[in-house]
Write a protein that binds this DNA or RNA. Structure first.
Length: 712
RNA sequence: GCCAGCGUGGCGGAAUUGGUAGACGCAGUGGACUCAAAAUCCACCGGACCAUAAAUCCAUGCGGGUUCGAGUCCCGCCGCUGGCACCA
């Protein structure tokens, strides 16, 4: 194995600086003596430094993991030395799809696979010599842990933030299962399963939904008070997508219906020349005239068959059909034709828009294509495209002469006074579909009774553990595999009413939403403190928020938004005392292969940390990864660069130790005046650079110091 | 298309607040040690002019600008990376 790994012969040096011997000795010592145990000493200031915990995949650790872990480890060690009580834990995001697929393939319990992987990961992480407090270790798939995940769900439910709703799922008849988006591929514009290439269709199903949208404003405001990379904050802001606009009512001719549209450009109301509904809009059925029915039905079927991908990717072609119906302009009472088109999304705003082709590019393209009238209401050039900038209003009755903002204010005032519409705020953020038709996840603590009511399990009944199954293959029904666990599934109430447990499980995000709290509640004996207990409250108040949180930016709008949401719910229950869970966030960059491409098996450029730990040692690996460049940058691996890191450690070693393993004569008790200046420079620079996570320059300074020490 | 970030030697990168551009490392060149090599130690290492050095000039993606002074600030381009993407 090592032949190609060594670009340089380390063999003979190993007798001098023997990393295998040294690292083994100290790692065993640390583990045995619990050197890095959190003290819980209230006389010291606290520091909570957290890594994004890994999903323990079958692949094991890759070189990206040690990068973030080393960064947090440096900070943890520094803070301990500076007299802080440091909480620095590690755990496992242990539920997930690969374990489920393994279970289906081998008919083994996914927990077996998961436990094996966790053991491998733990061993690998320990071989890196990281200073975790292993008494705090946790796994999201541990019933002691997911007991609290389930309990937090009941808290959400009691606040009205969890409800059952009809939501489309990706159903694959052939495989007899519901598929996740990442298990579907696009084949000639049709959805097919990644496995086998069988057709997949959207099908509605009752699912749990968490109303994260109710916290949209708080999630937005909270961003102001936290020290996160600007890019991540922007991504969250865009994801939440708050727009201030107006909803305006357009009554339908010959029907007792009013179409409500949402617009941010109410000022262009006099330029509206038609109305467009999303194909899925509930009014379509009722308003379509008999002579248009055939084309409307066909269009709606077409849109249903399109994949999400196709609907967005083919956005040059603005397709749509006329319903035969008309709506009244709310002010001029003109008749405007009502169309349906899939450029209008049912899931945003009201699923209906007033089309102002002169001043909206999408409406412009649609009007050109379908020969609909274009009416200009803001001065500007509309010969080639819509004019969307600020300008003076024309052809707009009482808005004439105003600019955009003044016109918006004035028209909304008018609409509100005449009961035709009102100022409205909409968000891009959607409620969170919280059900998965899977086995390997947290069961919902819920019973559905035959009389149609729902019971949420009491805290004393938790955890509701996953039942054992005779096989993990798909259920062949739209329900998840849990529907096969008859004994577990069916319950009877004291009054004889029968019920079934929920057959869905929670998504992988659930367990990771509160794990930073889980470490604090961990008693160290496999149990967790009750969230509401006095002891838990005392600990939470001490340790939260997380002072420094490091991980990849791929969780920018998933995990990091969902945990902030749960945290805010817990805050509203008074269970946590701070509004934000992660005070300072930092994203480490990606490590590319030596050829500057993403590491992957197929490219043959994967570096395995185990091999490096064996050949060069954990300290060389860690030093190199910190020296490669800025922590946040994407940077390529270099084997000769790694050799350089190893060489520096040997150089430091030789400064202390003679070839015969005696202490070097250079190491003396007295201060050396020649080194005084560079020593102070080094202390200052390293201290500052560690605080700002500029480890590459801190290491460069230490190299300068060692070079000077050699010279004197 | 929109949002964010980046562009500096052969390579990874430094220059933290507008003040000696290229710290530190890798690769390379020369020397010492050695029978020889490896390892180690020392020196050199952006380009032009030049035998060499000094001196000078050019140089931080491109074109302008502000300033005594710009890699850093401003305007306009070009290129790359990440994210979002018909959000009305």
């Amino acid at each position: 194995m090592d032949a190609f790994l060594f670009s340089r012969k380390i063999k003979e040096v190993v007798t001098m600086y023997n990393h295998r011997k040294i690292e083994k000795k100290w790692q065993e010592y640390w583990l045995k003596n619990k050197t890095f145990k959190t003290l819980d000493d209230d006389s010291k200031p606290k520091y909570y430094v957290l890594d994004m915990f890994p999903y323990p995949s079958g692949q094991g650790l890759h070189v990206g993991h040690p990068e973030g872990y080393t960064a947090t480890d440096i900070v943890a060690r520094m803070k301990r030395m500076q007299g802080y009580d440091v909480l620095h834990p590690m755990g496992w995001d242990a539920f997930g799809l690969p374990a489920e697929q393994y279970a289906i393939k081998t008919n083994n319990h996914p927990g077996i696979f998961t436990t094996q992987n966790i053991n491998t990961f733990r061993k690998q992480i320990q071989s890196l010599g990281l200073s975790y407090d292993w008494d705090r270790e946790l796994s999201t798939a541990d019933p002691n842990y997911y007991k609290i995940t389930q309990y937090i769900f009941t808290l959400l439910y009691k606040k009205g933030l969890a409800e059952v709703r009809e939501v489309d799922v990706n159903w694959c008849e052939e495989l007899g299962t519901v598929l996740a988006n990442e298990e579907i591929v696009n084949e000639n514009g049709r959805m097919v399963s990644e496995v086998g290439g069988f057709p997949v269709v959207k099908r509605p199903m009752k699912q749990w939904v968490l109303k994260i949208t109710e916290y949209a404003d708080e999630l937005l405001e909270g961003l102001e008070e936290i020290d996160w990379p600007l890019g991540i904050k922007d991504m969250q802001r865009n994801w939440i997508g708050k727009s201030i606009g107006a909803s305006i009512n357009f009554p339908v001719k010959d029907h007792d219906l009013t179409i409500e549209v949402f617009t941010t450009r109410a000022d262009t109301l006099f330029g509206a020349t038609y109305v467009v509904l999303a194909p899925e809009h509930p009014f379509v059925e009722q308003i379509t005239t008999p002579d248009c029915k055939a084309q409307v039905d066909e269009y709606r079927n077409q849109s249903k068959a399109k994949t999400d991908l196709e609907r967005t990717e083919l956005n040059k072609e603005k397709t749509g059909v006329f319903t035969g119906a008309y709506a009244y302009h709310p002010i001029t009472k003109e008749l405007l034709p009502i169309w349906i088109a899939d450029y209008v999304l049912i899931s945003y705003g009201t699923g209906a828009v007033m089309a102002v082709p002169a001043h909206d590019q999408r409406d412009y393209e649609f009007a050109k294509k379908h020969n609909l009238p274009i009416k200009q209401v803001v001065e500007g050039d509309i010969s080639k495209q819509a004019f969307v900038d600020d300008g003076i209003h024309i052809n707009s009755d009482f808005l004439n002469g105003l600019n955009n903002q003044d016109a918006i204010n004035k028209v909304i005032e008018y609409l509100e006074a005449h009961n035709l519409g009102k100022k409205t705020i909409k968000y891009k953020l959607r409620d969170w579909v919280f059900s998965r038709q899977r086995y390997w996840g947290e069961p919902f603590p819920v019973i559905h009774w035959e009389d149609g009511t729902i019971t949420i399990l009491d805290k004393s009944e938790l955890p509701l553990e996953l039942p054992e199954l005779s096989d993990y293959k798909p259920s062949k029904s739209i329900e998840g595999p849990l529907s096969k666990a008859k004994d577990w599934l069916e319950v009877t109430r004291a009054d004889g009413v029968k019920g079934r447990r929920e057959t869905n499980t929670m998504p992988q995000w659930a367990g990771s939403c509160w794990y930073y709290i889980g470490y604090i509640l961990n008693k160290g004996n496999g149990e967790f403190l009750d969230l509401e207990s006095e002891e838990a409250q005392k600990r939470l108040e001490k340790w939260l928020p997380v002072d420094l949180y490091i991980g990849g930016s791929e969780h920018a709008v998933g995990h990091l938004l969902y945990s902030r949401f749960w945290h805010k719910v817990l805050y509203d229950y008074g269970l946590v005392k701070c509004k934000e869970p992660f005070k300072r966030l930092f994203n480490q960059g990606m490590i590319l292969g030596e050829n500057n491409e993403k590491m992957s098996k197929s490219r043959g450029n994967v570096i395995n940390p185990d091999d490096i730990v064996f050949s060069h040692g954990a300290d060389s690996l860690r030093l190199y990864e910190m020296f490669m460049g800025p922590l946040e940058a994407t940077k390529p691996w270099s084997t000769t660069g790694l050799d350089g890191a190893r060489r520096f450690l040997e150089r430091v070693w030789r400064l202390y130790v003679n070839e015969d393993h005696t202490l070097s004569a250079k190491i003396v008790d007295q201060d050396n005046k020649d080194l005084e200046k560079v020593y102070h420079q080094t202390v200052k620079k390293v201290t500052e650079d560690y605080e700002t996570l500029n480890f590459n320059t801190a290491i460069a300074q230490m190299m300068i110091f060692i070079n000077e020490a050699y010279k004197s």
